[in-house]
Design a binder for these strands. Structure first.
Length: 953
RNA sequence: GCCUGAGUGGCGGAAUUGGUAGACGCGCUGGAUUCAAAAUCCAGUUCACGCAAGUGAGUGCGGGUUCGAUUCCCGCCUCAGGUACCA
């Protein structure tokens, strides 16, 4: 009987669903194992061949663990809130809830057709009120807590209030922006709103006026990681800084733990580095410089206190609060002009051209160590958001200070002698101090410690650790997200809704346009805004990362209405053992999740400090992008396309633009010779009617308006296209949908082929060429069980050779699954199948374990063969066969014989032969004279089971 | 600029601890089958020279360590990803 993948696959997918094969219980004697995929955003385009790569890998691992006797949690769900659905609604008027639902249905179908072993009874959707009830609750809990640095954990804000009542904040060590010290009396004399304001500076979720990334075109505020190079990641619109009251999460409170605990988890080094850089810890000193002839002090932050004797001027950020006060009358006009110039520059411009700009305030500060007067400047290279927004400039040892000083003619004093360290750059903390009074002659690290000590003695500052990590802006002025569980009273004081009033459901509307001045669309729903008497509701919504920050916990107990997840469930499943997903979430999602998880840990609600023990970043499957060249200048008013060959020959690259073409029209797409012919030109014109009368010029002739004019008697033509590799995306017309591939080759083949393409972490272009090899393998595997069209397996005892083939394969597959090398697993199965075909083996003793081992990769064919072999239950639960080394042992081993490290011949030795025996026999081998003739044998190296090397000379 | 990876046949890739470089698959070449084609099967396929046996070269480039280096060390080049006026 022929292997007909589609019939088998549909049959078993139905069986699994009807029998709840993948349903997993929270009660089990088996050890637990949690395999998680990053849940998808259900976009309108559906899945393309790149999406399933990670899902297939994690599914293989989940199935493997299940067959090894683990109770495996392997869930799937949808990150369903987000901007695309809202933009789609703005264009089409279709409600985001409706389009999201439609998209999820399509994703469900596609994911099911891929044969994944998800427990669909645990599916979560972040836009489901039953789900976001708990997103809102966790946010409220963050509001009700502050970070106590003495206890090094989050504690209830109510405790803090008690402390304030007793002794003010005099002894409180907390993550806060509160700088003023107050005692109990001062606290009790504060008004209600003053108290609230003060507490707001401690809460882990707090409201503050801040500069946010404002995108006019999208009418919303974006998170830092949604902004790339000053333009929005989505849509590529310009982004500017705008002051707005925002809800924030005090992620910085956890900076040290987020950094330190990276050591405890098994993530790739590149990913850990990305997170480390993002957190950006730096050790330095915070200190005050007196302003000359004034009581004012300027607070600065530096990582190089040792260079203070070279501090010849100071710089304030343009937004710094002292700029106004310090500017002298003489410089007022110049400073005002400079400030308005800075304001006119968008983030984009600042990034694009980094010219050195600045203006002198007219004021001077006093260097506390040299007691010399140094000028105070304003410059945009100092950022208000980092450190204190002011620096002491050391032009001798800082690249930026140096260019600035050179441009404006400021003093430069060398303070570090780097002559002992050739090749060291300015930013390296290396060298000996010079021109620096009491630290002269010290090495840099020693000098840093010495100056820090002196600074503290003088009472002008302290050593301080700074982080680049900023608190997370959490407000979005858009519709399709979780409403904040917040109401404001008549004074504008924020109150969190209690759990009984959650979820606060997103009100329905047909109008998704941004509100006035960046207000959320919810602000127009006045009935809803005022629906709680005496209060008004917060109208912003949470960002997409909110729902994804804790979804992995919800899967543990997805239908619980009393808690985000029951404590029994959380204590049973603990944490995610294996997490698979794309590295594009390296900062946002993976940082927020770790933050939320640590907060819940502090509250005693989860048993682990880190949510994801091991993380694998699957690579991207890229697409081929095909372009045709179009002349920038029209010919006789018509667009003029040219063959890539002509562009190349006449070097016309500057005169042409590249127009992407749908890959379906391109013959041999992806190859150097890819081209379109007249038939595809007609398809192209049907797709792009604006080019109806365009000219298509190639070497053999020209096509226009349905007529091909040949140059030299050619009948047809190839217009060569330009191929590139890039992201698969709708806008590049290069999306390959898995459905058609599955239709043709079957799910098992698709799964194995995606794994066979290469290492899971590598990115590679999709290329359907090689799939026939995998398809052939599956057919050959199937045919091992068939003779003359009939399912035939024998109960005969397996031979030594057959056992060796089986156990070699089992060993390779087991070890390779454990190290996530799935591509080599596939080739191990191919090798075994080829060998068994040669041996004409159809014995149960060999084929049954092989079918079980193949099940994680190709579950449908394995299930079918398993049932034909009358295996018990589903192959999904069949014990994964263990390999037995004893079957791998050989009687004799073939050694390469090398002369001076180069292989010259081969010889077989008994597996039990001693090193000396091998050496003796090797030196007497026939044909060896040729190589050692006339030379002396200096040494013979025998590596048991590996090789023999004879050193002559 | 800095950080993290990677660079191996015509192509995707393998070589796990320093020990036969190129597993497995695609493609290509030749053959069988066929009226023919597709499909299938068999053989070959790193490059150069050679009819062949064979000889030489060979894992981005240049050095080094070693009996032996794709693997370790030093210096460079290229590509990918991340990141940046972060004091």
């Amino acid at each position: 009987m022929d292997y007909t993948p589609r019939d088998i696959e549909q049959k078993w997918q139905k069986y699994w669903e009807e029998n709840d094969t993948y349903k997993v219980s929270n009660q089990s004697d088996k050890p637990k194992y949690y395999v998680l995929d990053m849940f998808p955003y259900p976009s309108g385009a559906g899945l393309h061949v790149g999406h399933p790569l990670g899902y297939i890998a994690s599914d293989i691992f989940a199935r493997y663990k299940r067959q090894q006797g683990f109770n495996v949690l392997h869930p799937m769900g949808y990150d369903a809130f987000g901007l695309p659905a809202e933009e789609y609604a703005l264009q089409t008027g279709i409600h985001p809830a409706v389009s999201t639902d439609t998209n999820i249905k399509r994703y469900n179908e596609q994911l099911r057709s891929l044969g994944f072993s998800f427990d669909w009874s645990r599916e979560v959707r972040t836009c489901d009120p039953k789900y976001y009830k708990w997103t809102q609750w966790i946010f409220a809990e963050l509001f009700h807590h502050y970070y106590d640095q003495a206890a090094n954990k989050a504690l209830p804000i109510a405790d803090l209030v008690k402390t304030f009542e007793k002794e003010g904040n005099t002894k409180v060590k907390a993550a806060t922006t509160q700088e003023e010290i107050f005692d109990a009396a001062a606290w009790s004399s504060m008004s209600k709103s003053e108290k609230e304001e003060t507490l707001m500076r401690y809460r882990l979720a707090y409201r503050e006026v801040g500069y946010v990334n404002w995108c006019e075109a999208l009418g919303t505020v974006l998170a830092n990681d949604q902004v790339k190079d000053g333009i929005s990641e989505r849509g590529g619109h310009p982004v500017v800084q705008k002051a707005m009251p925002q809800w924030n999460l005090r992620t910085t409170a956890y900076a040290e733990r987020l950094l330190g605990d990276l050591e405890t988890i098994d993530w790739s080094s590149s990913l850990k580095t990305i997170q480390r850089n993002w957190i950006g810890r730096s050790e330095g000193a915070q200190m005050f410089f007196d302003v000359a002839d004034s009581d004012t002090k300027i607070e600065i932050y530096t990582t190089r206190p040792d260079t203070i004797f070279g501090a010849t001027y100071m710089v304030l950020a343009p937004e710094h609060e002292l700029v106004e006060q310090l500017t002298t009358e003489g410089q007022r006009a110049a400073i005002d002009k400079y400030l308005s110039y800075v304001k006119s520059r968008s983030e984009l411009e600042r990034m694009a051209d980094k010219q050195v700009t600045g203006e002198f305030t007219g004021a001077y500060a006093v260097n506390p160590f040299t007691n010399t007067k140094i000028p105070i400047w304003v410059a945009e290279y100092v950022l208000i958001g980092y450190g204190t927004g002011a620096i002491m400039a050391v032009p001798s040892d800082d690249e930026r200070d140096k260019t600035f000083a050179e441009k404006f003619g400021l003093d430069i004093i060398d303070v570090v002698d780097k002559s002992d360290y050739p090749g060291a750059t300015l930013s390296d903390k290396l060298g000996k101090m010079i021109n620096s009074d009491f630290i002269n002659g010290m090495e840099v690290p020693e000098a840093i410690a010495e100056v820090n000590k002196r600074v503290e003695q003088m009472g002008i500052g302290t050593a301080k650790v700074n982080y680049k990590l900023r608190d997370a802006g959490f407000s979005r002025q858009r519709y399709w997200g979780e409403p904040f569980p917040i109401v404001y009273d008549a004074d504008g004081t924020a109150e969190m809704l209690p759990l009984q009033e959650l979820p606060l459901e997103l009100p329905d509307t047909e109008d998704f346009k941004p509100g006035q001045g960046g207000q959320s669309p919810l602000s127009r729903l006045t009935d809803w805004v005022n629906s709680k008497s005496g209060y008004t509701r917060e109208t912003d919504t949470m960002p997409a990362v909110a729902g994804s920050s804790w979804y992995f916990l919800r899967y543990m107990d997805p239908h619980n209405d009393e808690a985000f997840a029951g404590q029994d469930a959380v204590n049973y499943w603990q944490d995610v053992d294996l997490y698979v997903g794309g590295s594009e979430h390296a900062v946002a999602h993976l940082m927020y999740s770790r933050f939320w998880h640590k907060f819940l840990y502090d509250k005693g609600l989860v048993p682990t400090q880190e949510p994801f023990k091991k993380l694998i970043n699957q690579g991207m499957i890229q697409g081929v992008i095909e372009f045709i060249y179009m002349k920038k200048e029209k010919t006789n008013g018509q667009a003029h396309f040219m063959c890539a060959g002509l562009v190349q020959r006449d070097d016309l690259f500057d005169e042409v633009a590249r127009i992407p073409v749908h890959i379906d029209y391109v013959i041999d797409y992806g190859s150097e010779k890819s081209f379109i012919n007249i038939k595809s030109i007609k398809q192209f014109i049907a797709w792009r009617p604006e080019y109806e009368n365009a000219i298509f010029e190639c070497s053999k002739g020209t096509y226009q308006n349905g007529i091909f004019t040949s140059k030299k008697d050619a009948t047809g033509t190839h217009l060569i296209t330009h191929s590139e590799v890039g992201k698969m995306s709708k806008s590049k017309y290069n999306v390959v949908n898995p459905d058609s591939v599955i239709e043709q080759y079957g799910t098992d083949c698709f799964r194995m082929y995606e794994m066979f393409l290469g290492p899971i972490e590598a990115s590679k272009p999709w290329d359907v060429q090689g799939i026939s090899g995998v398809s052939k393998f599956l057919r050959n595997f199937w045919n091992l069980f068939y003779q003359n069209e009939k399912f035939t397996i024998t109960e005969d005892e397996a031979t030594k050779d057959e056992l060796k083939v089986l156990h070699t394969c089992l060993k390779k597959v087991t070890e390779d699954i454990e190290r996530f090398s799935f591509n080599t697993c596939v080739s191990a199965f191919m090798v075994a199948t080829n060998e068994l075909r040669k041996l004409k083996c159809n014995k149960r003793a060999i084929l049954e374990p092989l079918a079980i081992a193949l099940a994680p990769f190709a579950p449908h064919i394995s299930e079918e063969l398993w049932s034909k072999m009358e295996g018990e239950g589903s192959v999904v639960m069949a014990q994964f066969p263990a390999f037995d080394e004893s079957h791998l042992a050989e009687d004799s081993i073939t050694y390469p014989i090398c002369i001076n490290g180069k292989k010259r011949m081969e010889a077989a030795f008994s597996a039990t032969a001693s090193k000396d025996d091998i050496e003796k026999i090797a030196l007497e081998l026939d044909g060896l004279e040729k190589w050692i003739d006339g030379k002396t044998v200096r040494k013979v190296i025998v590596v048991p089971k590996r090789m023999v090397n004879i050193v002559v000379g």
